[in-house]
Design a binder for these strands. Structure first.
Lengths: 211, 211
DNA sequence: GGCAATTTTGACCGAACGGACAAAGGTTAG
DNA sequence: CTAACCTTTGTCCGTTCGGTCAAAATTGCC
């Protein structure tokens, strides 16, 4: 992956401050979307003045791009770890678990990504059609191999991946709705445990080889 | 449900123009989100001037509210139709099919709703915690009844509903990503057929009673 | 046809926003 | 210590946006 930074960080302060800004930007962008987020608000969250922030990132878009590039990298990590060598059912169960843990531990990242896609991915379309598609294509071949070998049930690998994405990310992206529907009794921990149990059962039942 | 209209429509023109505006607003809001949408753009899409539009809806929020209220009503229709009387497996299969058809036929509504929830549902929280939760609670009881009767496998009804929502709405909300990953070969029709087949198999396998 | 009510429009306003800039204040290496 | 470079800030500008207003145009009713 190629990262183009408007200002290549050179000094200690630049490295620290850029990190501080990206952390603040993640907070603000994921809450308000690209248009709803203001430079002033990001600067305030990062504890600096607007002109100061603009010294590190010349444009609002630059902050957003830097954030999206970094985000997508960690975002695809669970899928990258889906390994051809291991036991298929174990591998897929592990993938679902890791993906759900990402929703639990990085909800801001999930919402930011969802927001971008929802708007038509105007800023990261190349990454989606490039890096992401390549990775999915690769893993689809792995899954298809497992199916041919009779290790898991035959089904559509693409839609299997979509379903795993959809169900796991739902708990981050629609968190407000999930909490409202479940009521106040369930804490976050219990919610995610129940979800993990349910999803594991759902997908394992769907993937167990039939004969 | 209570609908509060800032201006109660009285004349023929008011009824027609308000309809025209809401249609345009759905288009614009679902593409740009609440903050990204401008009154000017909605007015332009509706083929009228901004002050003219503001004659029918005094505030931007009023358009948005009117839209959300109407939307939620049709949005919950498939779940309302989940019937206690029918055969459980058939009922649930029908629900999944209807929900997927809604994603196919009303993607703008799906995206608008997703956007609102993603932002924390600031404008429709009462509806989510009220009307929606009530409906879900009711249907959860129905599903739980089916489980106790041994008609479907025992699992968590709440998370079952969440999974159906997540997987079906994914095809509307993440449409851009789905298209990019599947490549240009698949048309919309084929995509939705494949998805329907996959989801039906996944959930039917997961719900078939075990003994 | 004429009058009242409704609808449409152009012009305008204040606030918020993205961004520019120059000057002031710090930091660091020789 | 000092000169060169890096960092921070106050101020300002043009644009966009939500919303107002009064006047003009149109419609509906007797």
């Amino acid at each position: 992956m190629i990262i183009v930074d408007a200002v290549a960080p050179r000094t200690r302060i630049q490295i620290e401050k850029r990190e501080l800004i990206l952390e603040a930007a993640l907070d603000v962008f994921s809450r308000f979307g690209f248009r709803g987020a203001t430079i002033d608000r990001i600067a305030e969250t990062a504890g600096m003045s607007k002109p100061n922030l603009l010294y590190y990132f010349r444009r609002k878009d630059d902050i957003y791009s830097a954030l999206m590039h970094r985000l997508l990298d960690t975002w695809l990590q669970p899928l990258r770890e889906l390994d051809d060598i291991g036991d298929p059912m174990t591998e897929l169960r592990g993938y679902i678990r890791r993906k759900l843990e990402m929703s639990r531990d990085y909800p801001r990242e999930s919402r930011l990504f969802a927001n971008e896609i929802l708007e038509g991915a105007p800023r990261i379309m190349p990454l989606i059609a490039g890096e992401l598609k390549t990775l999915v294509d690769e893993k689809v071949l792995v899954i298809r191999g497992w199916m041919k070998a009779g290790k898991i049930a035959r089904t559509d690998p693409h839609h299997l991946i979509f379903s795993i994405w959809a169900t796991t990310q739902h708990y981050a992206d629609f968190d407000v709705q999930v909490r409202a529907v479940l009521g106040p009794d369930k804490g976050a921990a219990g919610r995610y445990e129940d979800a993990a149990r349910f999803l594991e059962q759902l997908f394992m039942d769907g993937l167990r080889p039939k004969d």
